[in-house]
């Protein structure tokens, strides 16, 4: 296994609170790696730090051998780190197809710059075809023409996943992709994420432990801004400190 992402003693505080207090985490290439931990353990902060939404106060981020600690968000996207958000972030007044097409267009090294002013984007057929494929991949091919504000919550979450995928990330950061979903929609999303195994590296924050234990290749437990342990699900599930610190009787 090759390490794709490594964080070394990563720290970030807000006021007096250390949301990340020396996080050492490594994500292997091709795995689905889940991040769990009680509320306030610093899961979302860590996603912010890895994606470049926030800058760390101290520590190092190494991605594929490069130190990216000081790079901003769009430089990190260019290297292949894309994130999703807890609260759905889409373009509400555009069609689903246009939402994804914009994500495809963002891959400048393949398509060239977005600073093109004359040719209609609707005439760039290969871009549109690719966008359609991504929509198909998440099961939204039928809804391609609808405005994003008019589809269901579950469909919007799937759309967001399609947009993230369309940037062809090497590391996909998913922050609670099942938030606010019903059981059926959650299952659909879990299947989608599972289908990425081996194709993309995924770092997933999720509260639904059933799904996490089924989905993840490895799990890191975050407590009070530090990684308590990282291991395969069966070991994490059985670990006494984890049960005490986080799981309680939930999976007993």
């Amino acid at each position: 296994m090759i390490t794709l992402l490594q964080t070394i003693d990563l720290k970030r505080h807000f006021g007096g609170l250390w949301a990340s207090n020396g996080v050492d985490l490594s994500v292997e290439s091709g795995e689905i790696h889940a991040l769990i931990g009680p509320n306030g353990a610093g899961k979302t902060t860590l996603i912010h730090l890895i994606s470049g939404t926030l800058q760390p106060d101290a520590g190092q981020l190494v991605f594929d051998g490069h130190d990216i600690s000081r790079q901003n968000m769009h430089q990190r996207v260019a290297l292949g780190i894309t994130r999703s958000y807890q609260i759905t972030q889409i373009f509400p007044q555009l069609s689903l197809l246009e939402n994804v097409r914009l994500a495809v267009q963002a891959r400048q090294h393949e398509w060239g710059s977005s600073f093109r002013f004359w040719r209609p984007a609707s005439a760039e057929f290969s871009m549109i075809e690719e966008a359609e494929e991504w929509l198909g991949r998440v099961g939204l091919a039928e809804a391609a023409g609808q405005l994003a504000c008019n589809v269901s919550h579950g469909e919007r979450r799937a759309l967001e996943l399609a947009m993230a995928l369309a940037t062809k990330p090497r590391l996909l950061l998913l922050d609670e992709p099942m938030a606010g979903m019903g059981p059926e929609e959650s299952e659909h999303m879990a299947a989608l994420i599972s289908s990425l195994r081996g194709e993309r590296t995924v770092l997933l924050v999720e509260h639904d432990l059933d799904i996490v234990f089924r989905l993840a290749d490895r799990i890191s437990v975050l407590v009070a801004g530090r990684v308590l342990l990282t291991d395969i699900p069966t070991i994490v599930r059985a670990h006494p400190e984890v049960r005490q610190a986080y799981l309680g009787d939930e999976v007993a």
């Binding site: 246009e98 914009l102 977005s114 600073f115 093109r116 040719r119 209609p120 984007a121 760039e124």
Partner: peptide, 17 residues
């Protein structure tokens, strides 16, 4: 309607994204 214009449309609706 160009790439640039569509990017602006995206920007107007959701800069974070």
């Amino acid at each position: 309607h160009s790439r640039f214009g569509r990017a602006l449309a995206g920007l107007r609706q959701n800069e974070v994204r």
